[in-house]
């Protein structure tokens, strides 16, 4: 995903000033993706260079209005028509950390899992508070857009917790009695390990 496509999609709704684009981009993503005005103008400059938008007139303060070109319209259509390919996203640090936790001696995988799970749940709580505070009967299109972005983050956090649960259950299954090497095995642990078998 790029700011480029976001701005282009907004311009496909009609000509806008740079500061307008920034405000609309932020409100439709629920301020979850804050832009600085410099990013907006550098992106607009690239779009202009690629002839996807043009500058039309300026107001008294010398601020330009930008308009999408037919080539830009085509670019937006293609963007909406193309699925997002996951491999295009940055590599997942958490998956890599888990993979290494499993193979690195002396690392307690359960602790790594739990540390991440608690942190992810905390952010899930924050997102849920935002959702709980929002009106359920939104009328503004911007509010619908924000709600959808918020819920995508909620679903992602939820999926992460489920995956962590899965990792833990999987590790218990494949290494049932493998206690962390550093920790002494207490009588209770031995009993529960026996109960699991």
């Amino acid at each position: 995903m790029s700011i480029r496509h976001g701005l282009l999609a907004l311009l496909s709704q009609g000509p806008r000033y740079g500061y307008q684009l920034r405000a609309e981009f932020e409100s439709s993503t629920g301020a979850t993706w804050p832009l600085n005005i410099g990013q907006v103008y550098s992106t607009l400059a690239r779009l202009e260079r690629d002839e996807l938008i043009t500058r039309v007139g300026a107001d008294d303060e010398g601020r330009f209005v930008y308009r999408i070109t037919p080539a830009g319209e085509e670019d937006v259509r293609a963007w909406f028509a193309t699925p997002v390919v996951r491999a295009d996203r940055p590599r997942d640090e958490l998956a890599i950390k888990m993979a290494l936790a499993v193979t690195t001696p002396g690392v307690d995988v359960r602790t790594v899992v739990q540390t991440q799970r608690a942190a992810t749940l905390r952010s899930l709580q924050d997102l849920t508070r935002l959702k709980a505070g929002a009106p359920d009967d939104a009328v503004e299109p911007g509010e619908h857009a924000w709600r959808l972005v918020l819920e995508s983050m909620i679903f992602r956090a939820e999926a992460e917790v489920r995956w962590l649960d899965h990792c833990e259950a999987y590790m218990v299954r494949v290494r049932p009695v493998d206690a962390p090497p550093a920790a002494p095995v207490a009588a209770d642990d031995a009993e529960s390990a026996e109960a699991q078998r």
Binding site: L121, L124, T128, A132, A157, V161
Partner: peptide, 18 residues
């Protein structure tokens, strides 16, 4: 609950193991 999306409505989430 086992659903984190529901647990997230709580003020505090307590994790039990064994």
């Amino acid at each position: 609950t086992h659903e984190s999306r529901h647990a997230a409505w709580a003020d505090r989430v307590v994790f039990l193991r064994d």
